[in-house]
Every structure is written in structure tokens, then in C-alpha cells.
Amino acid sequence: MAGCATAPLDEAGSLASYTDLAQADGLLAKSKLRIDKEAVLAARTVRLVPTVFSDTARRDTITEDQRRLVTNAVDRSLCAGLSERFQVVAPSESADLTVHAVVTNMTPTDEKAVAATKLASVAKSVLLPGIPVPTPRIPIGLGSLSMEGEAKGRDGRQEAAMVWGRGATFLSGSARVSTSGDAYELASAFGDDFSKLLVKGESPFKSLSGPPSMERLQSWAGGAPKYAACEAFGREQGVTGLVSGAMGLPPEWTDKGSGAGVVAAAPAPAEP
């Protein structure tokens, strides 16, 4: 049995252009990207359009509420990551860059396989107390997530684009007992990778990242984000998120989702 799920890099048509996309894979993620480094590094402000599911993405495997949590997890991660260098403004404000992302494909997680893994972990704790033996996932029904992301300048020209896909692995210890469990976890991974592309002006897989800022650490701990615009996507769960992930609780049980007044399924961004 395969030890990891595969995620396709299909083109869903959400990008202004797919020309000159170059293969740039990471250790776990597959991607194609392009970036106008000079233009992106010159930008100082960014506005974020809420993530949506593409028309071609399967919608019958998870509920509408689960889709909202997945797309909101993308936006929350993007907003926090972009805050490392950019000033994030409200969607109604003008900005140097307009960023949007689209879910192009999602493979659901097999809840029964995850539950069996969690039971095996509990059994190991009972039979081998105090012995640090890892419990890998049963490699059945591993979920995956495929995304497209784009940043446009004030003139509507594409300044950066990424087609990205990543699947869960049998070593994904924070698997959740939910059909959207893996997609929810991978949503944050995409947000991290795409925001690093824009912050650094180069492939996020090219080199190791430096230490996170104090604002980023505060955000991970559930504190207030650096910019008020990011409050629209809710706050990280901090310790609660770590504990619920270790226990395998469904994200819909613990994540409150977006903040008040946010439309979870917004149309594609209009030209600035």
C-alpha cells in the first residue's frame, strides 16, 4: 500500500495565465510557479480575496460547512504569512497586490482508517507505557488537496502564480477523524508556501526558512493577528488546536471558522 496520497496539478482556469510556470517541488508538495521578483518585492500592501472551491472540484465528499473551514484555513494561513512583510488591508481597500486562491481538487479522508490509527495509538500507550514508539497512520484513504494561487498588481497583471498539490502521508500524526481532516491540515500548508513565495520573491522550497517573527508566534498561539484585516478569518487555536489535532478531533468540532461579516464563498476577484 502507498504511504502517501497523491494530489494532481490540474489547471482549473482560475489563473490569468499559465504561461512560464516552472516545476518547483518541495519535499512533500508538488508545485509549478512563476514570479516577477522585482515587482513583488517592491510591493508593500496586499489585499486578500477569500478562497473558494473551483467549479471542477468535487463537492459531494464534504459538507458546505466543512468546505468553509478548509477555505478559511487557507485564508487564515495566507493572511498570517503575508503579514511577515506586507501590510494587509481590507478587501475593499486598494493595494499593491491582490491575492486569491482556489481549491482545484480534494480527496476526502477515510474517517474509519483514521479512527483505527487513533485506537492503535491508545493501545500502544496501554501496552507499552512510557516507551516512545511512534504510531504511523494506516495508509488507507489518505486525503489530498490541490490549489491554485495568484497575485495581481494594481494594473491587473499577474505578478506571481502557483499551482500546488500535496497529499497526506502515513506519518501525518495529526490526522483528524473527518472526511475533510487532511484537506483542513493541508490548507495551512498551502497558505504557508504561497505566502513565502510572495514574501521572499522566490520559491519557498529553495531554502530553509528563518525563524518566525514574534507576531507570527503570537498568531500561532491564538493571539491577535498583526493586522486587523486578518481578524476576518478568525484566530489560530493555539494549544487547543494542538491537543485537538493529537486527539484526532474533527476540525468542525473545534475551529470557530471565519470572523463576523466574512462571506466564505466569494466570487473570483475583479480586475483592480
Rank of each mutant, 00 (worst) to 15 (best):
T135N: 12
T104Q: 07
T169S: 12
E11C: 11
R76Q: 05
F86H: 05
D96E: 13
G3E: 13
T109F: 05
A116H: 05
D110Y: 07
S219W: 12
V89F: 06
K256H: 13
E159P: 00
S244N: 12
F194K: 00
A224M: 10
K256F: 09
P251G: 10
D75R: 06
P225G: 03
P211I: 03
G261Y: 04
G181R: 00
P212T: 08
A42M: 08
G130K: 06
A160Y: 00
K30A: 11
A43I: 04
V133S: 14
A90T: 11
A7Y: 05
R34N: 05
V49R: 07
V263F: 00
L208G: 12
R68I: 06
S244W: 09
P136H: 04
Q87E: 15
D110P: 03
S258W: 08
V126G: 03
A160G: 06
S180A: 15
E202F: 07
A264W: 08
L217Y: 02
T254R: 13
T179K: 14
N105C: 09
P8M: 07
P204G: 08
R58E: 12
C4P: 00
A39S: 06
D10L: 15
L9K: 07
E111M: 14
T254Y: 15
A268F: 10
L186H: 00
K200N: 10
P269W: 04
S207F: 04
T117C: 10
A73E: 08
V239H: 02
I140K: 13
T117Q: 06
L197G: 02
E93D: 15
R34C: 04
A2M: 13
I140V: 15
P272G: 06
L197M: 09
K196R: 14
L28H: 13
F53D: 01
F194R: 00
S219K: 04
L198F: 00
V239L: 13
L15C: 10
R47Q: 11
P272T: 05
E231S: 11
G3H: 15
P250D: 02
L78Y: 03
A183K: 05
V46P: 01
T19D: 14
R44F: 09
K37E: 13
S14K: 01
R137L: 15
A265C: 10
R76T: 00
S209H: 10
G13E: 10
M106Y: 09
A168F: 01
D20L: 03
P225I: 02
L127H: 12
E159Y: 02
P225K: 01
T19K: 14
K30R: 14
T107N: 11
L242A: 15
V114I: 12
S172T: 14
V70Q: 01
R47Y: 06
S94R: 15
S172Q: 14
G201H: 01
A57T: 12
L127M: 14
I138L: 14
V163S: 00
R47D: 07
T254Q: 12
A229R: 03
G156T: 04
L119K: 09
C4F: 11
V163M: 01
S219D: 15
D75G: 04
